[in-house]
Nucleic acid binder design. Structure first.
Lengths: 230, 230
DNA sequence: GCAAAAGTGTTGTTGGTACACCCATGC
DNA sequence: GCATGGGTGTACCAACAACACTTTTGC
């Protein structure tokens, strides 16, 4: 077909699944209570319209900043949803992203612009506005498969973390137990963790070593064909 | 932010990378010569505007049908591109898809609506309109990684194929040689190929057995946690 | 001294890789 | 009979899985 700019256009939004890992290593997502119709009073994931002068990623980052105060976050495009009935008022296509953050490092205040917002554990997600439950499901599936071959886990943990925390995170996301010795052997053999020389504080048992992910080394190895894998 | 439907909207298109495998097992993509501005006379991938009454996937299928005559094709969403300068005339966001077909089975006529269209081997892709080279690069990367853990290869081959054809396809896409005995051992051990009992015809050497991919068995195994992998 | 989590090696099994020759067919 | 690709097995090695006890620390 030929280009013709006078056809009616679908509305275009971005929406964002924000995964946050709390101090107890529980994985949560941020939801916002809608204060207007449609789906007034229902929970939804943060998002909003794409402006003419910003890229899709810029729009997602801006909405996150405006609605949740989140900044400097790992963000990745997830999928674009465009089914006909997904917005009851208008034809709306949304480009979904997902973000990964650590709730201890960032101290996100859930509600910044007076709207109600909160973190929900994955086990207690209510019915969401629009097709947001479907978007969430897609995000969980993506996270679950991608964390096995990309070092996404370190985006969810604090900068310095113990091997047990890392293992527990993988067990949470992959939803199955992992053998402690084998896990440590595998992770340490990749030689991508820097021993910070410090240990965790204020624990009622032997203090664990704190490690940091070596991003520089990883991106160098990756260029040479190395594949991260758990 | 609140919903407001009166903001100006970006134009929304779908574009599609069509991978086709020819009789010589060369991987090609379909390009169409643009007959209007912008990028008039340059090659581009098929695509066009999303209508208000069709989903994104329906739009991609319709454009493929209109511009290339292709029907009944494996189609998957690739990525959504929305950089500001990608269309010189207007803000345009495109949802890119990729399709996989076999050129022998389907006998695609490249040009159906009088416009010039042709199949290009990946080694001789010209400079394309818009950001279509970038989209193509993304599609090649996706195909290369996904063919290793999803049975995409069978979408590119004819329904009945020999093990050598399958191996050559994998060598083409992965861009490295594979060991014949190990490849056969691996593939046959998954027990997903049906021996059709027939052999290829008119070859000047020992005729190879023809196999078919067992889709039913695969989707059943997949539900039980089986992972295809080459 | 006890509770709680950190840390550490070995063995058996499985799957990957490397590798070379005979077979069937058409001409 | 020769050229062409089809088809087959074994041996070595690396990675994975299973598994239990000692160490450190705070109380």
């Amino acid at each position: 077909m030929t280009y013709n700019y006078n056809y009616p256009r679908p509305a275009l939004t971005v929406d964002c699944i924000v995964f946050g890992l709390d101090a107890e290593l529980d994985l949560k997502i941020m939801l916002i209570k809608r204060d207007i119709s449609p789906f007034q009073g229902q929970w939804a994931i943060p998002g909003g319209f794409v402006r003419m002068d910003e890229t899709l990623e810029q729009a997602a980052l801006r909405e996150l900043q405006e609605e949740t105060g989140i900044q400097d976050v790992y963000l990745e495009q997830l999928y674009t949803f465009g089914d006909l009935g997904r917005d009851p008022r208008d034809r709306t296509v949304t480009v979904a992203y997902y973000a990964l953050i650590n709730l201890v490092d960032q101290k996100i205040q859930a509600a910044t612009d007076a709207r109600e917002a909160d973190w929900f554990p994955l086990s207690t997600i209510p019915q969401l506005a629009f097709d947001h439950n479907q978007i969430l499901q897609t995000a969980i599936t993506r996270l679950r498969s991608k964390i096995r071959y990309e070092p996404l886990g370190f985006e969810l943990l604090p900068k310095k973390f113990t091997l047990s925390q890392l293992q527990k995170l993988y067990e949470t996301v992959l939803d199955r137990p992992l053998d402690k010795r084998n896990f440590r052997k595998k992770i340490l053999s990749m030689d991508l963790l820097i021993d910070t020389g410090t240990v965790e504080q204020n624990v009622a048992h032997r203090a664990a070593k704190l490690y940091q992910f070596d991003e520089n080394k990883y991106s160098q190895l990756k260029r040479n064909g190395f594949n991260f894998e758990i």
